[in-house]
Amino acid sequence: MLDNKQKMKAYWKKNLQTLFFLLLVWFTVSFGFGILLVEQLNNFKFGGFKLGFWFAQQGSIYAFVILIFVYVYRMNKLDKEFDVNEK
């Protein structure tokens, strides 16, 4: 039982690490590139876009989609590793 409890603690810790990393990216692409650093990034061109503007109206949304699928992949792997996956 104790063993199991420790295992669950380790699972939860790994889960939190995954979340922290993904939310860091989430914050960076939207609040970071799209708002805080938009002026600086606008000095760069990305096709016909100013880079900061592109992040605010396009790039951040693509990044959000990718983030969720990375999360799904990571968590499914983690669930199997700790044998808590659903049949």
Binding site: L19, L23, I35, F53, A56, Q57, S60, F64, Y71, V72
Partner: peptide, 25 residues
């Protein structure tokens, strides 16, 4: 967005970024 340009980004990011929170948290 047509009339607010860059400022309209708040809706684009705000109404999609919430799904990351929803999915993860």
């Amino acid at each position: 967005i047509s009339f607010s340009g860059y400022d309209g980004s708040v809706y684009l990011m705000g109404w999609t970024g919430g799904y990351v929170l929803l999915a993860l948290l």
